[in-house]
């Protein structure tokens, strides 16, 4: 699992959802967490951050800049292209999943999800990226 010092960015236009995802991160030991309310503000944080983010968890449907647009921007920028990226969505649309995979998403979580599912999905991302469990 990601180290507790991993810098995490939560992106969602709904404040209560950001709160709930933060709680889920904290329960995994991820305590170094920042938040942004849409893709534009998220990119501003990413660009301005002195150290790189180690994990981005973003909602799909947001005003100004959607999660998929943010993902594409992250993947097309040299110093962020390898950042682990997880998308959250309320929809289970196969075309959407395909688009996300093609854009380079690491994993995809359908809302609502419980702590167990969240831990499993984030754990899978870590394993895929760093070849380690736990």
């Amino acid at each position: 699992m990601f180290a507790s010092t991993t810098k995490v960015l939560i992106v969602d236009d709904m404040s209560t959802m950001r709160k709930l995802v933060l709680k889920a991160c904290n329960q995994l030991g991820l305590v170094n967490v920042e938040q942004a309310e849409d893709g534009v503000k998220a990119w501003e944080k990413i660009a301005a951050s002195p150290e790189p983010f180690g994990l981005i968890i973003s909602d799909w449907n947001m005003p100004n800049c959607t999660g998929i647009d943010l993902l594409k921007r992250v993947r097309s920028t040299a110093n962020t292209k390898d950042t682990p990226f997880v998308l959250l969505t309320a929809e289970r649309d196969t075309a959407q999943v395909k688009e996300a995979v093609e854009a380079g998403v690491d994993n995809y979580i359908v809302k609502p999800f419980n702590q167990e599912t969240f831990a499993e999905k984030i754990g899978t991302v870590f394993q895929k990226r760093f070849g380690k469990t736990g």
Binding site: M14, S15, K19, K111, P112
Partner: peptide, 17 residues
């Protein structure tokens, strides 16, 4: 004014699907 019904539904379902 700040929390839509969509947000209420999404966040409550996170607590109990």
């Amino acid at each position: 004014s700040e929390i839509s019904a969509n947000e209420i539904a999404q966040s409550l379902r996170m607590l109990n699907g």
